[in-house]
């Protein structure tokens, strides 16, 4: 699934409906959705290329979003793991205990 794409000198992102939209319309909710997709799915992006995007505002937005999402994709496992390490020991111990007795 391609989240960021460059077409006709424009920077585009994958909208909620599956349509690509210009990046100057991207909101923070859109960004969060892209983050979720990056963590869940196998995603890809068109590499940022200054010459391929004419609009300077698009350049700024595309470059920043691209770099962040690519970084996230590379460290996706670590990103999720870090939050699940909280109280992991207790979780595993009690999960085992409670399921044992339940039987």
């Amino acid at each position: 699934m391609k989240l960021l794409s460059i077409e006709n000198n424009l920077g585009l992102y994958l909208g909620e409906t599956g349509q690509y939209k210009p990046v100057d319309k991207i909101t923070k909710e859109d960004l969060l959705r892209l983050v979720n997709l990056t963590l869940r799915e196998d995603v890809e992006f068109d590499v940022y290329d200054e010459n391929a995007i004419k609009n300077q505002a698009h350049q700024i937005v595309y470059k920043s979003v691209f770099e962040k999402l690519r970084g996230l994709k590379d460290r996706k496992k670590e990103f999720v793991d870090e939050s699940e390490r909280l109280y992991l020991k207790e979780y595993e111990r009690y999960r085992e205990d409670s399921s044992k007795k339940k039987v």
């Binding site: 990103f79 999720v80 939050s83 699940e84 109280y87 207790e90 979780y91």
Partner: peptide, 23 residues
């Protein structure tokens, strides 16, 4: 056993929240 199930559920909720915050 219910207490243990409770704590597991709370911990899972914490993970979700923590992940959400990180995002």
């Amino acid at each position: 056993e219910s207490l243990k199930r409770l704590i597991c559920e709370l911990i899972k909720l914490l993970w979700d929240k923590a992940l959400e915050n990180k995002k």
